[in-house]
Design a protein around this nucleic acid. Structure first.
Lengths: 176, 176
DNA sequence: ATTCTCATGTAATTGGTTACATGATTGC
DNA sequence: GCAATCATGTAACCAATTACATGAGAAT
């Protein structure tokens, strides 16, 4: 999304498409991912619109184009920031499966809940790894949002674990 | 998404596209929305593929087509259920704005956090309204997932409120 | 009569992913 | 010499939203 690029360029200073990708992957990707297929075409559009401008900025001997945000770009970005975000929408395939799965299969439900818990725990682990290094004092609220992610994933993981534990394990089918 | 339709038809019995839409809006929409623009074309595709079949099922004097899931449809749906859901992805414009917004504007940040809290509280209220009526004993886990939604939204709302409250309110600019 | 809800759809657009393709440079 | 990383891009595709369009029956 265009504004994300503008936002990064504003907060982090000039950077290449590649840089944006890695920056996103190390911070925003936990609530807003981005792929090259979006980034590069979008950079061109933004440049054509005069909201950013690229200049050759080789790193060592490697050719590279860094884009810097222009005043109109800043204005555009701040207009977007000022307008309130739209209705909060959640889309979660795991919960969808849970919802649609048979209610007369307790072990299956338990397994699903545990799987969901593991998934959140995995995100949590990734975020914790981020916690140590990274998150410089550049623009934005990396700390606050990191905390948000930690709180969110640990809460949901615990909730799922708890619910899973309330489902009795299937009695071991013994034969003796 | 095709499987959602299959899932509803399996759990709720035969229903029209319109019915699916209302059913989704009263349950799944809180974590997986659907629009007519998806539903109707998808119903046709599913019928063409033999996974569902429609029959005239007028309600009173109103013409209407109800679709029932076929055995291959059930099989297809259950295959989908059995395969584990993909990586958990979050996409939240509110958090994105929080992340990208200036860190040297405490009142703004506070306002953003409060706005996010209000948004989650609004979802919470909608879910609570659902809690009373509805959620029949049909297929799936409406209760469990409803609980999930309640827990999720109230936790996040509280977290945001808490963080917002930690930011001192701007000193009232008096003139006397 | 008029409005609301039921009911069905389409067209245009947006937003995004995936897979592919290429090539230079740096570090081992 | 080779692998990893830096760097840039495109084409095909998919999922979904929005807005539009229509019309009949039910309720007031």
């Amino acid at each position: 999304m265009a504004v994300v690029l503008l936002g990064f360029l504003r907060g982090w200073g000039p950077m290449s498409g590649y840089d944006v990708k890695t920056a996103v992957d190390q911070s925003a990707k936990f609530f807003w991912a981005a792929s090259y297929g979006q980034i590069y075409p979008e950079l061109r559009r933004l440049e054509a619109a005069g909201l950013i401008e690229g200049e050759a900025a080789p790193r060592g001997d490697r050719s590279r184009t860094a884009y810097r945000i222009t005043p109109p770009g800043v204005e555009r970005f701040e207009r977007w920031l000022a307008e309130p975000a739209g209705r909060l929408e959640v889309r979660d395939e795991h919960v969808l499966k849970l919802f649609l799965s048979s209610s007369d299969d307790p072990p299956g439900t338990r397994e699903r809940l545990e799987h969901l818990a593991r998934e959140h725990e995995a995100r949590l682990a990734e975020l914790r790894r981020l916690d140590a290094r990274k998150s410089p004092d550049l623009g934005g609220h990396p700390r606050l949002v990191l905390d948000y992610g930690l709180a969110f994933h640990s809460f949901i993981a615990a909730w799922c674990r708890d619910r899973a534990d309330q489902i009795p394990v299937p009695p071991p089918t013994r034969r003796t």
